[in-house]
Design a protein around this nucleic acid. Sequence first.
DNA 1: AATTTTCGCAACCGCCGGGCT
DNA 2: AAGCCCGGCGGTTGCGAAAAT
Length: 365
Amino acid sequence: MGRAPCCDKENVKRGPWSPEEDAKLKTFIEKYGTGGNWIALPHKAGLKRCGKSCRLRWLNYLRPNIKHGEFTADEDKIICSLYASIGSRWSIIAAQLPGRTDNDIKNYWNTKLKKKLLAMLPCFQKKPSFFPSLPLHSPQPYRSDLLLTNSTSPFYNYTNPNFMNLNNTTNSLQTTNLVQDLANITHLTPSPDHSSSLISLITNINSNENCFNLGFEGDHIQSMYDNPMEYQYPTSDVKEAMLVFGSGGEGHEVSATGSSSEGGSCLSQISYGNYSKSNYEKHQYQIKQEDQFSLQGFADQSQSLMIDHNYSTDQKPKGYNLKIDLEEVRQLIGNSTNNISSSYLFSNEDEYKTTHDHKEICYHY
DNA sequence: AATTTTCGCAACCGCCGGGCT
DNA sequence: AAGCCCGGCGGTTGCGAAAAT
């Protein structure tokens, strides 16, 4: 049995607010305040609205000093910085931007800023580093060397040509490039408590999540839990093959089938998890952002990006510093016409279906 | 010019935590 | 201590506008 609704949904008006309703609400609150009770407010104000709806309308639209319109470069910078630090805590981010609402910032991020930020990732801009030897604008033959062949995993032996075989030399190089690209963009600095400054790759078959993970590792496997940066390669049963960068382990929502609502899109997260080897689902502070970020660059492959960043329970960064190059973001935003990667990166569902059906590889500009 | 697709944003939904009884 | 109520929050949806075909 579910929770009782906050209001009688049959008798409340829904949908867009009329100017008359706005005026009623504004006048009432300016005169009497909210009284600390949003549920009772609409009745007092003579509105046939749910209290929550009134609250939202007031906070997001009617209250004084609300700022609408374009976000400034400085605001972009703050949003990017805070998102990199705390994730999708929109109310906290909004608190740093006077006049902006959490809803505004959330919408702005989801529709514009995120795409611009992701589009600047070198690993997606430099196609050869990720899709070496695949010429553009031409269907590609089936690549047997890109098959997954490891028969030890039920997910691994799925011979989907859209996945890379990370066991062979070619793809090790690809992966190394990928690692380097991400390291470049995030300016990751190894933690002092990881004695190895070298990034080594490990492969960790994760049967629970249909992924195998590539992680940065220090000298000991413990690093796998301490170190948040790992790549996950879903290996089966996904209509869109995708690459997820980020944290794995139980309690993380990184399943390959975790697609968001829209057909051609796939999952992406920026999450913050506190791992401990013994019980890494405890004390976990996770912030998740699902992206609608798809890539049609490799057969019917869609990809997503996850930047993961380890936090301890006091939510302070532990181990690594992630710095988004905000100047690059700003330049990118300021030069929206020069955005080759965005059209390359973002596909729509129809394109997906077309290439999926015909097993062709198409690059889009 | 008409139709379809995509985009942007306001609003809704449902979960969660805190305060009160 | 337990249960209820409410506010706050983040994710999602729906619809009108704009862009593309």
